[in-house]
């Protein structure tokens, strides 16, 4: 049952990923990427990571991809039209891709039989689960204790991002603009 669900979701995500990199129209690519993200959210659910699955939908599908679509629509982009100056490059890229997946896949396959030791956090989480403490609460607790510095750093990063975006896209009114050289 789980294996079947995995098969369906894995096929969905691989096909949509292929579509993202092959489709001419950027809008279609973006929508296929949303499909891929939904498939990945399903895979997270299959691994019992409900919080992350919902985050995946909320953050990636609900916010990031809407931003992508917004920019594509705003700029009214068409697909790649101009001829490629280095057409042979593409085949090299695909060859490199095959080599990469071969390498990583071989590495994964070679460790397939081994099993990982349960981490101390894993033992704690399992025990918390046996006491009826929900996954959300354990994750929230970890996020605000052991990961509090990365968490705060992320918020600083987001703030920097917001300010950076505003500086980048601000139109300077009336002449003297660096962007304005007609």
């Amino acid at each position: 049952m789980a294996l079947m669900a995995f098969g369906v979701l894995a096929t969905l995500s691989v096909i949509s990923a292929l579509g993202v990199i092959l489709h001419k129209s950027p809008v279609r690519s973006a929508l296929l990427l949303v499909t891929n993200f939904v498939g990945l959210a399903g895979l997270y659910l299959l691994q019992n990571a409900q919080v992350l699955a919902v985050f995946q939908i909320l953050v990636y599908a609900g916010a990031i991809m809407v931003l992508f679509l917004f920019v594509i629509m705003l700029l009214n982009l068409a697909g790649d039209t101009s001829p490629d100056p280095l057409a042979g490059q593409k085949w090299v890229a695909w060859l490199l891709g095959v080599a990469l997946v071969g390498g990583i896949g071989w590495g994964m396959w070679s460790v397939a039989g081994l099993s990982l030791p349960v981490s101390p956090q894993g033992i704690r989480a399992t025990a918390a689960e046996q006491q009826g403490i929900q996954q959300v609460q354990v994750i929230g607790f970890d996020l605000f204790t052991r990961y509090v510095y990365p968490f705060e750093l992320t918020s600083v990063l987001l703030l920097v991002g917001v300010i950076g975006v505003m500086t980048l896209t601000r139109r300077i009114p009336q002449g003297g603009s660096a962007n304005d050289r007609s």
Binding site: P120, I123, T126, A128, Q130, Q131, F141
Partner: peptide, 11 residues
């Protein structure tokens, strides 16, 4: 919080 941190000692 101790309900979560100490969970393993009460495992």
């Amino acid at each position: 919080v101790p309900a979560i941190t100490s969970a393993s000692s009460r495992a």
